[in-house]
Design a protein around this nucleic acid. Structure first.
Length: 153
DNA sequence: GCCAACGTTGGC
DNA sequence: GCCAACGTTGGC
């Protein structure tokens, strides 16, 4: 059984439409610089897991589609790249601090499921993304939540 | 653009 | 190891 996740992105930085157009419809999910999210990327997110692609800081906010993890956690090489905005001068080569995964586009919903809509769907009351102050850019999603949302999409 | 939430840093 | 200051996220 795959596990389910939700990943946030600001569409001005990287949108689901960018992912659709990417070579092999695949991209690496770099730049996560939060330890809780890092732990999930490094330890928990495996090849074959499924992901909701969420647009934040935009209009409308919400889940725009799905993607599949095609490569599980591996070191985010941008931490070692002084040119990158994700460079981390404290990161050590043989003990990487930050991790990323590769995801491949699966589906763009015909209509995004907005944050506002998510708040009113029965069964999603405990979903992390609708909780106030929930800032993690990578979040676990339960199988039940996944099913409810896919049925509506 | 504001600001609440909350993670991180660093002085002590 | 506490906690104030500071920075960032992200909804509104």
């Amino acid at each position: 059984m795959p596990n389910y996740w939700l990943m946030k992105s600001e569409p001005t930085t990287y949108s689901i439409f960018d992912l659709e157009k990417a070579p092999q419809k695949t991209t690496c999910w770099e730049g996560v610089r939060n330890y809780q999210a890092r732990n999930m990327l490094r330890d928990d997110i495996k090849k074959g897991d499924l992901v909701f692609f969420y647009h934040s800081n935009t209009k409308p906010i919400g889940i725009f589609g799905t993607a599949e993890v095609v490569r599980g956690g591996y070191p985010d090489h941008f931490q070692f790249d002084p040119q990158s905005k994700y460079h981390d001068p404290k990161a050590i080569q043989d003990n990487p601090r930050w991790y990323m995964v590769d995801i491949k586009h699966k589906k763009t919903f015909s209509q995004p499921i907005t944050l506002e809509a998510l708040k009113h769907i029965p069964g999603l009351e405990n979903m992390k993304v609708i909780q106030k102050g929930q800032r993690l850019s990578v979040q676990p999603v339960t199988a039940k939540e996944w099913d409810i949302i896919l049925k509506i999409a």
